[in-house]
Write a protein that binds this DNA or RNA. Structure first.
Lengths: 343, 343
DNA sequence: GCCGCGATTGGGAGCGCTCCCAACACGTCG
DNA sequence: CGACGTGTTGGGAGCGCTCCCAATCGCGGC
């Protein structure tokens, strides 16, 4: 009916904890203690159990542990499906790698969930239903209420990227503001004076933070920050925004594009309009995607370490789950300017 | 000790099946039947239960279902960490989206696992330990024994991308051969005669299949297929291979690059060597990544639908889990040439 | 009017594990 | 010398669900 797995295959020949106990000549309790690294087990018993486990190829039944222990040994990574998929791809893959790397060695599984329009309630029910110990949310669009809801339900939650609609929920983000600030300074210090920006969407913190950094950088240098166009993290929107900027001020001599993927579109337009990069117009991107180095010309950009973002989110969550106190309400990861040819 | 979650929080206030039963005025059994869409429930009872579920926000405890039902309601997506990460990114994200989309509506969770050097045995133990009902493997490198091992252990397994080392395990792949064939034909029919290729690694089926398709295409036209250089699905390797080809035959007038990401490197080299694209050298890529359209010039390429690959893998696996018989041993998904500027 | 059979329902035994508690073996201390 | 720790062990009650089996309810046919 639901299309679920409905073929109840015969019980697989899994070795059970009890068999390990028998093989090691101890009780179930002792085996359990060894598995969970608890104290109060003699060295002798511990070794006997370890050997039995290896010999039998025993792997504890997660479902049973979860059920009995009231602990899922499992965290969820939730991705809001809304927002630009284009942005999502390399970003998401990087975060995922970080999350997974940080989880390696801990006996914690990762389940992946994507929130879709309409099934938010199902998602919340599931997450709050004790199936997971904590949640990592990658919130792509601004006012997503999900982190707030989860946190209010008492479920440990860490958000990737500053959430606009969930003040108070711990988050980890790249230092978008200072990255953009550095980009602006770089352009100013290389003698540019009419500096525009292709900003990200107004409803995303990442867009606003990079815009704010750019503004501050120009303001500090006494350069006007009036050339602003908005895109949505697609190449096409980058192209459109670039055309807007050229219309606003044909004498523009530099542009900070708030994402490499949009910078590709911008470069195309500059190319088509006969502007040489970097001679006529300098371009700085953001993210340092793989393709930044193969752009024509190779793109100067602000590097953010997305994999580290994933790792940091995870370790922050695990610390909370381990009961650590006085954890920071947010963490900002450093960004750095990568100078190539375009600026 | 293991760094696992070790704070046994107090039991969360989850509503249980029994409470639903009481609220609906029926027995646990009846509620269970409703949840699982089983027959032999009166309309009246079914409705009462449904209402109670909604009202109480009930979500069944997966751990308990798994434990009792001997069925995990969960499949694993395993990614071999080896192989090019660059290739992995957009490919992986696309597959994942497909898998997830296909799973939507089925009560099946997706857990993500990456195989790392050294912990293969743990992975196999875990997967074969009854924690998952089936496995999707994205096998990036050639002779990975994992699919074979899983299949031999009786665990339903579907591989994404033709596996070299696991004959007999069902797989889904894009039709790399015919895609490359079409690319070669396109180049021939546009008058090119010295056509090279930047092939993928020799130990990956995707590399060999695309190479074979290109060879066949040229052979059918009576054009020599002697200009071959190999890359590893990174832009840098694409650049190096392109230089090789130019050295092999400076009069080359077209190149089929077996991946867009390598094509970017190739374009850079052609640019640097003063060859105009497509006037002097035509370039066809493969994959149709987002960045293909923003390359300079926009890249003609063979499109493969990675998301559909993920969907197809999943539905194939679910069919098997549902006990369907006579399922195809493999499935090839069509590819199509997307003509832009570069060829 | 009684029987049989299909449609429905309820009861309860586990699934494999964790965790609480009691039991025991040694010391040491008063 | 007995009371009292500290370290170590085993036993057994559930965790929330599924699934088997038995009980019940109609209802048409003989």
């Amino acid at each position: 009916m639901t299309g679920a797995v409905d073929q109840p295959r015969p019980r697989r020949g899994t070795t059970r904890l009890e068999e390990v106990a028998r093989a090691a000549g101890v009780s179930k309790s002792t085996v359990s203690r060894v598995i969970n690294g608890e104290p109060y087990v003699s060295t002798k018993a511990r070794e006997a159990v370890s050997q039995a486990i290896t010999r039998l190829g025993y792997s504890p039944n997660q479902a049973a542990r979860t059920l009995a222990g009231n602990r899922a040994n499992c965290i969820a990574l939730v991705v809001s499906e809304q927002g630009s998929r284009v942005l999502a791809d390399p970003f998401f893959a990087g975060v995922l790698r970080g999350v997974h790397g940080e989880l390696a060695g801990r006996r914690v599984q990762l389940v992946l969930m994507m929130s879709k329009e309409g099934d938010e309630q199902d998602l919340v029910n599931y997450l709050c239903g004790g199936h997971v110990d904590g949640v990592l949310v990658i919130s792509l669009h601004g006012q997503d209420p999900l982190p707030r809801v989860l946190a209010d339900a008492g479920l440990p939650t860490v958000v990737g990227g500053r959430p606009l609609g969930a003040a108070g929920v711990p988050y980890v983000d790249s230092d978008n503001f200072n990255g953009a600030l550095e980009a602006a300074r770089h352009l100013v210090s290389s003698g540019r004076r009419r500096i525009g920006t292709v900003a990200g969407p107004r409803d995303m913190a990442v867009g606003m933070d990079r815009l704010a950094g750019w503004q501050r950088g120009l303001a500090q240098a006494g350069v006007p920050a009036d050339l602003v166009a908005y895109g949505d993290f697609t190449p096409e929107s980058g192209a459109t925004a670039m055309e807007e900027l050229l219309t606003l001020d044909p004498s523009l001599d530099a542009v900070f594009v708030a994402a490499d993927i949009m910078a590709l579109g911008a470069l195309q337009v500059l190319h088509a309009r006969g502007r040489r990069v970097p001679e006529d117009v300098a371009v700085v991107g953001f993210d340092d995607l793989v393709i930044a180095s193969t752009a024509v010309p190779p793109l100067t950009t602000v590097r953010q370490d997305v994999e580290r973002l994933g790792r940091t989110m995870t370790s922050r969550l695990m610390s909370e789950l381990a009961g650590e106190e006085d954890l920071p309400p947010f963490l900002l990861l450093p960004t750095s300017l990568v100078t190539r040819v375009s600026a």
